[in-house]
Design a protein around this nucleic acid. Structure first.
Lengths: 106, 106
DNA sequence: TCCTGTTGTTAGTTTTTTCTAACGTAAAGC
DNA sequence: GCTTTACGTTAGAAAAAACTAACAACAGGA
């Protein structure tokens, strides 16, 4: 599942809030829906988008469906940003050290 | 500048690619535009969205405009995800240790 | 079996985003 | 001053996303 799909899924305010709700506890679909002003089917679709992007894990218990954030997804996001950013940090650090060396030579 | 605005800005494929282009070097607007199939004004608008969200720094040099990724923005993104995720990790770790202790007692 | 509670799915509308085409601005070179 | 180069901005069309209303599925009792 590509990283961009995860970012896209998080880019909607409702979904962004849902993710906060299910960070460290399972919550049933209805309980999630009750937190928002919009209709329950609308929230259900948002849950579908988050699940499709791999950000949510769905578990069925009787007629209920329980949702919770998927650890792997957030690790992947973290690694992506670190991977994107750290090469630049290394480059800046190397540049700073090169400047230091030239100052010492003077 | 809120984190959600940054995520929204990154959620578009073109903008996602632009950010990669200007990670560790300044690039003029035209050079960025030439990399994409769409018209130059369209890319200019994308640059505007990224700048507005705080992901890009704009510098004027004569009639040219140079863009490069803003370090602070990505640090903020990194901190946000870490801040969102680490409490859960702590909780899971504590739970695992509690189980270990109960096993030892047995 | 019939009814209720819990949920997803689909059709269709509204809203938002993305794009192009045309125009405006400002610096640089002649 | 005139022209060219390098851009941004605006208006409006096209495409995508988000929503509601109506319907379908399915488990769990009475």
């Amino acid at each position: 599942m590509p990283v961009l799909a995860k970012i896209r899924a998080l880019s909607n305010e409702t979904r962004f809030e849902i993710i906060k709700l299910v960070r460290d506890r399972e919550l049933e679909a209805g309980a999630v829906a009750r937190r928002f002003k919009m209709t329950r089917p609308a929230v259900s679709q948002h849950l579908g988008v988050l699940r499709e992007a791999g950000l949510l894990r769905e578990r069925r218990a009787g007629s209920k469906r329980l949702y919770i954030a998927r650890a792997e997804a957030f690790d992947e996001l973290l690694e992506f940003i670190e991977g994107y950013w750290s090469p630049r940090l290394r480059r800046l650090k190397a540049a700073a050290e090169a400047i230091d060396r030239s100052k010492v030579k003077k």
